[in-house]
Design a binder for these strands. Structure first.
Length: 150
DNA sequence: GCCAACGTTGGC
DNA sequence: GCCAACGTTGGC
């Protein structure tokens, strides 16, 4: 899951009550579907920093709730307000995420691009702009290794 | 700041 | 239902 560290960083998540926050503001159908259809409580997720001097993976999170409607879509004062969404039929969904641990070493995009095992990783594909993408078990293990875990 | 890539919108 | 125009993302 991607976030711009200036807007919301791994440390910001850790500072939340019990290190748990909600992943609001997803306004792309594919990303929403990954959350709504494929995420289950306990699933592990990497926290990816985008649109910053050194993009890359900072830490590990855990899905901490079932998907539920993103309340910001009904909030006229929110940047994420969506006038086309109805309360009876919310368009946008989110999950809670909990900080698990920061990776001992930051895994930069540059490093990942230099790692042949990650050649197929969806996040790294040319033109990919999805803020949420699935990852394979093998790729997960590779990133953990690059991050200095075991 | 540029630009490639691609999702979304809206006219027809 | 097509597709041009537009907007956004995100790496560089």
């Amino acid at each position: 899951m991607k976030s711009e560290p200036d807007a919301y960083s791994y440390e910001d998540l850790e500072r939340e009550k019990r290190g748990q926050g909600h992943w609001e503001g997803i306004r792309n159908f594919q990303s929403r579907n990954f959350m709504k259809n494929d995420m289950r409580v306990g699933d592990l997720v990497f926290f990816y920093y985008s649109s910053c001097p050194e993009p890359g993976i900072a830490g590990i999170m855990e899905v901490a709730s079932e998907p539920y409607p993103d309340h910001t879509q009904f909030d006229q004062k929110s940047d994420y307000y969506d006038p086309t969404s109805r309360e009876e039929k919310p368009k946008w969904w989110m999950v809670d995420v909990k900080a698990v641990e920061k990776l001992p070493n930051y895994v930069s995009l540059k490093t990942m691009r230099e790692t042949s095992e990650l050649a197929e990783m969806i996040t790294l594909r040319k033109g990919n702009r999805l803020s949420i993408t699935p990852i394979t078990k093998a790729e997960w293990g590779t990133v953990l290794r690059l991050g200095g875990k075991r």
